[in-house]
């Protein structure tokens, strides 16, 4: 594990992963979008609006997955001071915020025609909105201090504190009565018919691979930014 803490080693692995994750993302969208938009059947109750699920659920899934990556990396950063772990969290945060926003917007656009309202303050919707705000707070904290290291540490602590929200989001529909329906992922599989589960799983794979590819590009930028900071310092010292 500590071997991967070395930035050079890590970026070599990331560069090897990038073409594969990109290929998977492209293939998943090329196959998944026609399935989601054309070839999957309308729902017996919700008709064509069920197609919103094929972007809403992957976005929701990713908003939680990315948060877990950030929380895990932040723990590694706080405990072992792994800079790469911190950079992974830093590179992931805007993507997680974007996924949460897509989840909220597509959810509102699904709720209005089916439930009869864009928004209610039930436990599920509220906890996902809080997740979005935690992302924004994390991003704001990163560069809020003159001393970058203090900002990094404060943001990492916020990420860990915010991780209590993750199980709350997942179990909100079981612990409390909500307007939002229960989870489609159960112990016995998905509560979907096969020709709806297929496009959904393909889109989830596509969103995940998309995240992996884009986070690697962002990680390259973060590593370069660190090098630039060092180079500036040595340049200034030489003058």
């Amino acid at each position: 594990m500590h071997k991967y803490a070395n930035p050079t080693q890590f970026i070599r692995i990331a560069n090897a992963v990038l073409p594969w994750s990109t290929a998977i993302a492209v293939a998943a969208f090329v196959i998944g979008l026609p399935l989601a938009l054309v070839f999957s059947p309308p729902d017996y109750q919700q008709g064509e609006t069920v197609r919103i699920m094929y972007v809403h659920v992957p976005a929701a899934w990713m908003s939680l997955m990315v948060y877990m990556v950030i929380a895990g990396s932040s723990a590694a950063f706080l405990i072992w001071r792994h800079t790469v772990a911190h950079l992974i969290a830093r590179a992931s945060a805007p993507l997680g915020a974007m996924f949460a926003a897509v989840c909220l917007i597509s959810g509102m656009l699904w709720g209005q025609p089916m439930w009869g309202t864009f928004w209610v303050w039930d436990a599920r919707l509220t906890s996902v909105l809080i997740l979005f705000f935690i992302y924004i707070g994390y991003i704001a904290l990163l560069d809020a201090f003159d001393d970058p290291e203090r900002g990094d540490r404060a943001a990492a602590i916020l990420a860990l504190v915010g991780s209590v929200n993750v199980p709350i989001i997942h179990f909100s529909v079981e612990w409390w009565s909500t307007l939002h329906q229960g989870t489609i992922i159960t112990m016995d599989g998905l509560t979907l018919s096969g020709d709806m589960a297929r496009p959904l799983l393909i889109m989830v794979a596509g969103f995940t691979a998309f995240y992996v590819s884009v986070v690697i590009i962002r990680l390259r930028a973060e590593l370069l930014a660190a090098k630039i900071r060092n180079a500036r310092q040595s340049l200034a010292a030489a003058e």
């Binding site: 972007v55 809403h56 656009l109 590009i217």
Partner: peptide, 23 residues
Amino acid sequence: MGGYAVFVWSSYAAAAIGLVGAL
């Protein structure tokens, strides 16, 4: 989309803007 065009297409547009914009 069975009368739900606005909702379905806006959702996909929001997702496309989010993902393509991030990329």
